[in-house]
């Protein structure tokens, strides 16, 4: 088997708010090999973004990582202090493409300056070398290198997103986390950005963790898919497992609610109810209140079961 890149074990990230403890990520495990891509899907508020921010250790206050391990290239990064993490892991090892490119760029600096800043700080480049490299990075994401002198407002939404991708790739990290990289973009631009990510993945051999609520978008890139619900992973497996043979009722519900472009028009299904309040999650299986198969057993927490090789489901239907 290929080399392990990232291993997350029992990760817990809680937010300590005035109203109580919100368990946004509550015991998440997964494994990612080198060059492999993972899609994390779930509804809003399921903890998928918090999971991403935990991996890169940027959980906003009052959130804290309270338990678990994140092994990145053989090192538990949660044991490093902030200074070490910033110098060795963040951006060099794991970088991030933030949600909403519109707001991720500083409007008063040119995009060249913003990309160069990373290289000046992390690689001790001179400003001139860094700007030259910034031009190359822009070319790599399909923007004219002369654009280094442009300000964010001079670029279209799609181009800004490309700049944010160039920034994430500036130090050639082995792992890039993309948190909803195409929200607020039009379908045509979205497809172009996904194509770019696919190309970069192939050419640079990087791993991508793609976080999205849209399972069809995840299918464009992910080798492995994790479905999150209420702060936990409820099903994880290869893309083929999840899309062709979904087992968890939640996964089935998510897939059934996607309108398709081809084939017979079947009635769309939906998942009734609302996601749980993570400050006071239901006991046992968190999906049980919305699940049509729920029974007595579901009051107890379901175990994670491997139903075929590499395909895990957390549901009493299979236990």
């Amino acid at each position: 088997m290929s080399e392990k890149l990232l291993e997350v074990n029992g990760l817990k990230t809680y937010f300590y708010t005035m109203k109580g403890v919100v368990k946004a990520v509550d015991g998440v495990d997964f494994l990612l090999s080198k060059g492999e891509s993972l899609g994390i899907a779930g509804e809003s508020g399921c903890g998928k973004s918090t999971l991403a921010f935990s991996i890169i250790r940027l959980v906003p206050a009052p959130g804290r990582i309270v338990g678990g391990k994140i092994n990145f290239m053989g090192k538990n990064v949660l044991e490093l202090n902030e200074e070490e993490f910033r110098k060795t892991i963040r951006w060099k090892g794991i970088s991030m493409i933030f949600q909403g490119a519109m707001n991720a760029l500083n409007p008063v600096y040119t995009i060249g300056d913003q990309i160069a800043e990373i290289l000046v700080i992390h690689k001790n480049y001179t400003k001139k070398e860094a700007l030259e490299e910034a031009g190359k990075l822009l070319a790599m994401v399909g923007i004219d290198p002369r654009r280094i002198r442009s300000y964010p407002h001079e670029l279209s939404g799609g181009m800004k997103q490309r700049v944010v991708i160039a920034m994430a790739l500036a130090l050639k990290p082995p792992l890039v986390i993309a948190d909803e990289p195409t929200t607020a973009l039009d379908v045509v631009v979205q497809a172009q950005i996904m194509n770019l990510l696919k190309k970069l993945k192939k050419e640079l051999g990087i791993s991508i963790i793609l976080i999205s609520h849209d399972l069809s978008l995840i299918a464009e890139i992910a080798d492995k898919v994790a479905i999150m619900y209420g702060g936990k992973i409820v099903e994880i497996g290869s893309s083929e497992h999840i899309y062709l043979n979904p087992k968890h009722p939640y996964t089935q519900g998510l897939l059934g609610s996607i309108p398709r472009l081809k084939g017979e028009i079947k009635d769309l299904t939906w998942i009734p109810g609302v996601p749980p309040d993570l400050s006071n999650p239901p006991p046992g299986c968190r999906f049980a209140p919305r699940c049509k198969y729920a029974s007595e057993k579901c009051n107890k927490e379901p175990p994670m079961i491997e139903i075929e090789k590499g395909h895990f489901v957390s549901c009493w239907l299979y236990a």
């Binding site: 979205q190 069809s216 299918a219 062709l244 472009l261």
Partner: peptide, 17 residues
């Protein structure tokens, strides 16, 4: 063409729009 489909085969191909 630009609309993504929930089909795991899509990740292997890069189709220019």
């Amino acid at each position: 063409e630009a609309i993504p489909e929930p089909d795991p085969d899509r990740r292997h191909i890069i189709k220019e729009l």
